[in-house]
């Protein structure tokens, strides 16, 4: 149990997928303009990422094994694409506005490097099924957490008197950098 907790804390804070692994920056910058959208995106990514880690583990262990490991990346992408497709339809049905707000970033979860990165890291770290699930969940929660915090910050930034050259994405990048600096405080906490 402690192990899983450590994985969770580790992936949410210490090895935050965005802040310290610098993965998944595309939706991080793209869907953080509004807090609501960020929460939706976080939920969607959490859903996809957790399922994808579990499914990828199963595929990798039981279908591919050692012999077909060269197909790993390819098959992971297929699995992820399938889950994303399902999520997309689900969101379109339940919240068309969120669907529109997420826009291109929703199908792009497929190519979100965080979503592919975590299953691959799972394989690399030789996690078992549950560990993979927790690793995926933790990574996704970490992603959602910083995404939401970042979105709330950007909402405030939008009304700030930022100098012209830094307005928009520029100051957002600086903010992301400073956030990353703050997250370095977790360095050395776990492993």
């Amino acid at each position: 149990m402690e192990n899983y907790l450590l994985i969770l804390i580790g992936t949410v804070f210490v090895n935050n997928i965005v802040m310290s692994k610098i993965l998944g920056l595309c939706p991080f910058m793209g869907v953080s303009r509004k807090l609501e959208a960020a929460i939706g995106m976080g939920a969607a990514t959490t859903f996809v990422l957790t399922l994808a880690s579990g499914a990828s583990y199963l595929v990798d262990t039981y279908l591919l094994g050692q012999d077909l490991s060269y197909l790993r990346t390819l098959s992971f992408i297929v699995v992820i694409a399938g889950i994303v497709g399902f999520t997309e339809m689900f969101i379109k049905k339940t919240s068309p506005v969120l669907f529109r707000v997420l826009g291109i970033y929703l199908p792009l979860i497929t190519t979100n490097c965080a979503v592919l990165g975590i299953p691959l890291l799972n394989v690399q770290e030789q996690h078992n099924f549950l560990e993979s699930l927790f690793y995926g969940l933790g990574g996704a929660l970490g992603f959602s957490l910083v995404l939401m915090l970042f979105a709330a910050m950007r909402e405030r930034l939008e009304a700030a008197d930022v100098p012209k050259p830094f307005r928009g994405v520029s100051i957002a990048m600086i903010t992301a950098g400073l956030m990353s600096l703050a997250f370095m405080g977790f360095a050395g906490l776990i492993r």
Binding site: A160, D161, V162, F166, I171, T175
Partner: peptide
Amino acid sequence: FYGGLGQNLF
């Protein structure tokens, strides 16, 4: 960079 006093986040 954030616009001076009162505007900074950090």
